[in-house]
Each structure stands twice: as structure tokens, then as C-alpha cells.
């Protein structure tokens, strides 16, 4: 279960400060597929970053089950992120120096896990023929699938996806969404998807709307 209590994030200080997130409180149960929607600049990505320990909250708390992630120091947050969270970015964020396979296996190696599920993940994402290519040699859809595979390799409980189809064409976007839905259905993964696409939001079980940093 993911829970936040009055989570706030303010950028800057004094008069020039911007409250990107303001007293966000929510609860997400295990296995939920949740869409976080809102206009551009509403605070969706900020919320996702805070939940993914990619940023530190100015105020408030966030919990993953019994673990308060907002109080973790840098190395503990990194370890938590490595083992319990999978993050899929809009711009894929693959390391260009590594092949697709190496990108996928990176989190497993960082966590010193055996990655027994590697082949299964690769096959299920249709990447078998392309794993030894570099990101620059893959299409956008393929890169995003590699990113999803990377996010899955350590079998995290939660997948956080920040506009996973935002950089893809319609067909690739649909493929990616189908994968995510499948993972939620078959593996009971808790998936949070940030999107401004209402069609994607409609496919999710629940929608959380954010406007001007506040959960509506």
C-alpha cells in the first residue's frame, strides 16, 4: 500500500518559491492501476518523483506499507528504489553506452540479484531480437519497452510510469499500455501512470486528478 500524508514540495525560497505540490494526501492499495492526470505543470510528475524517491519532500510523509520513504537517507532511498520500485520515464533514460540487455540487467546487477526472470521479461516484451543493440539503434517503442523491462527486472511491487507513451507514436503507445495493463492484471503490480491523455486514464482502474499542486 502506498500512502501519503500532506505531502508538499516547494521549489525555491522566499518570494520566488513555487509550490509544485501542496498537501497531497492519498492512499493506493496493492495491485491498483492508477492514472494521475492533470494539465501540464500541475504537479503530477512531482508527485511521482516524490513517490519514487527521486526527489525529497519539503513537508509531509509518504509510506510504502510500513516504510516511511520520506525519512530515508540517500543511500537507503537508493536501495529502496532499487528493490521495490520500478520507474519508467517519458524519455526512456537508457544509458547510451550500454546495450539493451545491459540496460535491462543493470538494476539486477546493482542489487546483486540473479535476474532469473530476464529471459521471460525479454520474450514477453518482444525484445529477443534486439537485446544486443544499443539504444540509438532502437525505435522509440523498442526503447520504451527496454525501459519497462529494466523497471521490471528486480520484480518491484510498484511501477511508476511518467508519461510512458508521451514520446511514442500511437501504435507504440498502445503496445506499451497493453503491456502495462497485462502486468497489472497478471502480476498484480501496483502501477501509477502519470498522463495527460484521457484515453489512457480511462483504461486505468482509478484516476487521481491534480490541479495546481493539489489533489482534486
Amino acid at each position: 500500500m502506498i500512502k501519503t500524508e500532506n505531502l508538499c514540495k516547494t521549489y525555491g525560497k522566499g518570494e520566488g518559491s513555487v509550490a509544485a505540490l501542496n498537501n497531497a494526501s492519498l492512499t493506493i492499495e496493492d495491485g491498483e492501476l492508477v492514472a494521475i492526470i492533470g494539465k501540464s505543470g500541475s504537479g503530477k510528475t512531482t508527485l511521482l518523483n516524490l513517490l519514487g524517491c527521486l526527489d525529497t519532500a519539503t513537508e509531509g510523509k509518504a509510506f510504502y506499507n510500513d516504510t516511511e520513504i520520506t525519512s530515508l537517507d540517500d543511500s537507503k532511498a537508493a536501495d529502496f528504489r532499487l528493490r521495490h520500485i520500478g520507474f519508467v520515464f517519458q524519455f526512456f533514460d537508457l544509458l547510451p553506452e550500454l546495450t539493451a540487455a545491459e540496460n535491462i540487467l543493470l538494476p539486477a546487477r546493482l542489487a546483486k540479484k540473479s535476474a532469473d526472470n530476464y529471459q521471460e521479461i525479454v520474450n514477453s516484451l518482444g525484445l529477443s531480437e534486439r537485446v544486443n543493440h544499443y539504444p540509438s539503434q532502437l525505435s522509440g517503442g523498442q526503447q520504451q519497452r527496454v525501459a519497462i523491462a529494466r523497471a521490471m527486472i528486480n520484480d518491484p511491487e510498484v511501477l511508476l510510469c511518467d508519461e510512458p507513451t508521451g514520446n511514442l507514436d500511437e501504435r507504440s503507445g498502445k503496445e506499451v499500455m497493453d503491456l502495462l495493463l497485462k502486468m497489472n492484471r497478471e502480476q498484480n503490480k501496483t502501477i501509477l501512470i502519470v498522463t495527460h491523455n484521457s484515453e489512457i486514464a480511462a483504461q486505468c482502474g482509478r484516476t487521481i486528478e491534480i490541479a495546481d499542486g493539489v489533489i482534486v
Binding site: 537508493a78 528504489r81 544509458l95
Partner: peptide, 15 residues
């Protein structure tokens, strides 16, 4: 960039 990606994947700064 690479450092940021690795950190996003869970590599600690000390590593």
C-alpha cells in the same frame, strides 16, 4: 546524465 540515470535506477552516490 549517466550518473543521474544510475541513481534513478537505485545506485547510491557512494557506489
Amino acid at each position: 546524465y549517466q550518473i543521474s540515470v544510475l541513481r534513478a535506477q537505485g545506485a547510491s552516490v557512494s557506489k
